[in-house]
Amino acid sequence: MDTHIIERLSEIIADGEMDAKYVNVESEHSAMSVCLGAQATGVRTFTASSSQGLALMYEMLYIVSGMRLPVVMVNANRALSAPLNIWNDWSDSFGARDSGWIQLYCESAQEALDTVIQAYKIAEDARVRLPVMVCIDGFFLSHVYEPVDIPDAQAVGKFLPKFAGPVIDFDKPVSQGMWAGPECYQDFKKEQNDAMIRAMEVIHEINKEFKEQFGRGYGNGFIETYNMENAKYALITMGSLAGTAKHVIRENKIHDVGLIRIKSFRPFPFAEIKKAIKDVHALGVLEKNLSPGLGGALCHEVRGMVKTKNVSSFIGGLGGRDVKIDDFMKIFDDIRHEKKELVWV
């Protein structure tokens, strides 16, 4: 899963193609700890994980975002045990939903590459200073072979100049990640939330800038719409599911259902989604995630802001179960019929 990414990086670094230090660790908890410490001295850091590995990082995820360190990681989305399962769903990163990391979900291998480049620029922006988790569907995207345009290193260097700090200064020592009592802890949390909200404009700007330079953009940076021009109904989903949804809409010449793909799950693009659904009669949310006792967490967030339209809820693809072409046709029908009960795809 993530091992492909890390193995290849170790080769690139060992071959001297990348000016970086590769640190072997004994666990994911340590991997994120090393990123934390290294980032705090003033260098760019990267790691990748998935599933139980991300779960083991959990404690450190909060510390990295709380210390406002712009670490970038890729999470190859996979299910959590038990029962033991190594396949794709979003349980792992949804578990880290409230850890204060920006979460960007990708639809293709190309978008994964482009988003990692953008992620550093977003994370390091002085208005943001938050870590970014680039989420790619395990197997569907982590194990796919497909054409990817790898941008020229010089062009990437122009878009993303060398890390500009802050860098550790031994003449002016500072403490980081210090004690914060009841008198100020909440203020730090408010600042984190404010930074997350400011990240909205930064994500938007950087998506635009990337498109200008490399010719590829992903919607407005937060959401991407497809076939929404005359749509009476909308399907909201994320990740690789959106690719199959586009295929089904295109191949079946469907005019009444459009697609809204959420790319930025945190920060959550409330205003953008609201705008996108303003002309539809009803909508549905398809997600590879379950909050037991609630249902789909993504659907719950959408329902929270859509009071006047029916929002059908679909949970599918848990533990790698394939969401097939016929499933999408049924989902579209259920949205049209304003299905009220949770549907297990």
Binding site: W87, N88, F139, F140, H143, V144, Y145, E146, P147, G320
Partner: peptide, 21 residues
């Protein structure tokens, strides 16, 4: 599957290879 996808891409096609999960 992967070699086929790479070769087809070299031939000017779009291609995609995935393993069975």
């Amino acid at each position: 599957a992967e070699l086929m996808a790479v070769a087809a891409f070299k031939d000017g096609k779009f291609s995609q290879a995935v393993p069975k999960f």
